[in-house]
Amino acid sequence: MAGTTREEFLKTVRQSLGRKEGAPEPEYLALRLRREDQRQKVVTIEARVEARRRDLLTRLERVAGQSGWRVYRAASPEAAAGYVLKLAREKAADLVVRSEHDVFRRVPIDGLLRQEGIAVTPILAARAGDREHLRQEMDKAQIGVTGVDYAVAETGTCVLLPRRGVSRAVSLLPPVHVALVEPHQVYETLDDLFAVRRLAFIQGRGDAGSYLSLTSGPSRTADIEQTLVIGVHGPVEAHLVLLPPAPEAASPRPGTPSP
């Protein structure tokens, strides 16, 4: 194999730093926080976020709107499903793909769309067994609908953790992406998000998940004459549908601390 061994490479780096030996683990706070401290940190974050929930939702709505999301605050899960249907009609869609997020138990879009003769494909390749076919479906579909794992008010961001049932492509290939966001998923800042993810990493014994995607609006470019064009590779339209709180205790977030 071409290249240099790690040892050789690191030796050169060390020499450039004027050091002979490898450095001992540096004192770096963000790395030093162990499991219990990180958990405490997240508990504090959760409490703050809980206390500011209403403001955070307003802020998310405002910032997301500024970043190019079309934001819809649904009064009920049914209204949210209705929004998706209306969108599908507007786009004359005949195929909608969606992920397998929990939120679809509250927002049953499948039945509603199918009644209108619009096909809905939930992306669960493991079951279908044919990834190539699914990819083509996603490339053909006019709309992709997903839940989210987190949202960040500071930046108007929806965060997805692709995994079983959550394809990366649903929010990427179709020209329209709809993200369904539940209030308990909203955090205040990027710091909150990464603190929560770090805890998940520690609790998962070093499993960061293969992928984490932060989406803050539609695809855009200004590469020709610095003129903004929306929708170059990814979605041309990005819709953020903010749901009302679930009546019963919300389902736990992936990063929620467990004792």
Partner: peptide
């Protein structure tokens, strides 16, 4: 404030991942 896409990759597809 942030770019439209920020992507964090921590390795190849894991068992169970869709893509």
């Amino acid at each position: 404030r942030i770019t439209s896409y920020v992507t964090l990759v921590s390795g190849p597809r894991q068992p169970g991942d869709e893509d």
